[in-house]
Design a protein around this nucleic acid. Structure first.
Lengths: 345, 345
DNA sequence: GTTAGCACTCCGGCAATGAGAGTGCTAAAG
DNA sequence: CTTTAGCACTCTCATTGCCGGAGTGCTAAC
């Protein structure tokens, strides 16, 4: 089907999509005829449009409005017709600078980049950080946090910090904690969180005798704390930008749906997890995303890596009518920027 | 002026405000007459309304609409006429449960409570946590975070965790870090962040000889890292709830302004900082808040404490037309809940 | 296969209209 | 002196009807 379209037909489709992206209005045959240098008359364009509509790429809001691209139309455009716009030098610089400012812990870096991406694209920007269980540890520490609580802090290579509370254990002294921390660090050397946990339990079985009861119990508790799946994190920036898009600004219902979605980590995760595993940029249009509540939005996202493993993804969320030619390079660049930033950490 | 209003007049004002809160529509003399059991005719009410308008408590959108309370009208209502609604047993329970679930680090606790508060009130909820410099430390730890970075983790009594990156210092070994951590913990005992910093510098001057150059430098860097003002934190929950309010749902401009404001920590801080110092609940109506960009919103907020010192505040942000009789007790209860939760930590 | 021409459809804007809600004023009643 | 009934007046809002414009589909000619 799709392959059975001749060059002229696809050119018409491309112009329709691009015009619609630019104006958010249904586009008519006259407009396209002009745009193509009048080499074809409006009547001819109309015939072609009728074909495209039959093929499912276009739709009419009502008789005698122009056509607007359907989801399938956008899909075809993105897959076959898109001419990427090169990033402006200035935009690259800005992104670099944003990344540079994020010299605090990793979350600051990510937040800055996300924020700028959002503003450059005039869309809401989202970053998800996968649960760091698969990441390699840099160091571990047990800290006192009140009489009845101990805090287990883990720092990953790349700069992500996590902490989990352990309840109880009031009788461990500061000295005890230091000792256990030192020991945990030894075990952690070069390992992931998961591996560390296994290792702790392992060691504990082997050399039970070496530890007094209190310390032994503390080790078990550490292992248990490490088991609790840390959910991963979500950063959303530029929510206000979605009001720049008429499709959301006008329709309070859609707006509410999307704002609610932004408040549910799990939804955002489902929205971006495909991009995480894949290496290439992912564009899901309208119904394609797996979140039933949001049938009318698009997600452009790309994973970023830490060394060889994918650790998260960054992307934009907006209406189906997005300026993909501009937005796709932006997201790609942002993702690669994160990848390089995390490389030398 | 205000004191010069007789009982009947204020009763009319109260009814107008309450009706307007309930309906979001201008209210007319007929409605009020009915509401007051027809003891007064609409004509009389009209006279009273005219007086109230002259006094600045009411306004007319146009001739021959009903009256709407002005900012001053709301103010008077809140200060003198408000009949607080008792919290429902169920709501208190829910809040308690939310607080109980937040058994992770302090930020989880705060987030859960804030979220529920937001949903109960149908408004956006905001929590600010003041920069914890004045809070007493529970423990300190230096951790390796990559070759060129060290992470300084501080845990406050009450469970707030902060981390700051220190760049450089590649030659400190894990052992070194442990030793310095132990020493810092000794110095930190029972002190605030600020005091700790002073103490470090102090000690360093006195006993310079006791430390080798590397460790000395590390201490200096720690002190410096502690100096960087940590900005405090802001949590916003239930943004989508503001769309429940017709005044925002209809006016995209206001909506955008408020969403933008939510993206600027500093704005939120300015909005809530008054509540932080004061012990009582604060209600600022319309123009009263100090943020010029948001002249048409109300903030209901209350500080919460950790022991004797104020450490932050929790509140609601919404249109001036809020159900104060319900919302004020909610916020108060949430704040007191946070205070008790932090007490036994 | 392409295009000009034409009849037709549908939306959006505009003015006119009328009902409804509410006011302010006046004059009478308490 | 206060309250109220009555009434004229104002303003909004929803409804209606009426173009004009944009765009289409079809047919017939090129």
């Amino acid at each position: 089907m799709a392959s059975g379209m001749d060059d002229r037909t696809t050119r018409v489709l491309r112009h329709i999509v691009e015009d619609y992206i630019a104006t958010a209005e249904p586009v008519g045959s006259r407009t396209i005829s002009k745009k193509m240098g009048q080499s074809l008359s409006p009547a001819t364009i109309r015939n072609i449009m009728a074909d495209l509509e039959e093929a499912g790429f276009l739709a009419q809001p009502h008789t005698s409005a122009g056509r607007i691209p359907t989801g399938a139309g956008f899909r075809y455009y993105i897959d076959h017709l898109l001419a990427r716009q090169a990033l402006a030098r200035g935009e690259m610089d800005q992104l670099h600078r944003a990344a540079g400012e994020g010299n605090g812990p990793a979350d600051e870096l990510v937040r800055q980049v996300s924020r700028l991406l959002s503003n450059l694209a005039h869309q809401a920007s989202v970053v998800v950080v996968s649960s760091p269980e698969q990441q390699v540890l840099s160091s571990v520490s047990l800290m006192r946090a009140g009489v009845e609580r101990i805090l287990l802090v883990t720092v990953m290579r790349g700069g992500w910090v996590q902490h989990r509370l352990i309840e109880g254990e009031p009788d461990l002294t500061g000295d005890d904690l230091e000792k256990i921390s030192a020991y945990l660090n030894e075990l952690a050397e070069g390992r992931t969180l998961l591996q560390l946990r296994a290792r702790i339990l392992d060691e504990l079985g082997k050399e039970k005798a070496r530890y007094d009861r209190v310390m032994g119990r503390a080790l078990v508790m550490s292992a248990r704390a490490l088991t609790e799946a840390a959910p991963g994190e979500v950063f959303i920036e530029g929510r206000a930008n979605i009001l720049e898009q008429p499709e959301f600004a006008e329709d309070v219902h859609r707006l509410k749906r999307i704002l609610r979605a932004f408040e549910e980590k799990s939804v955002i995760f489902r929205l971006l997890d495909r991009a995480m595993v894949s290496r290439a940029i992912q564009v899901s249009v309208g119904l394609e995303n797996t979140v039933e509540e949001l049938p009318d939005i698009s997600v452009v996202a790309s994973g970023y890596r830490q060394g060889a493993s994918s650790v998260g993804s960054i992307g934009l969320i907006g209406p189906v009518r997005m300026d993909y030619s501009r937005v796709i390079p932006l997201v790609e660049y942002a993702a690669s920027l994160l990848t390089t930033m995390f490389e030398d950490r």
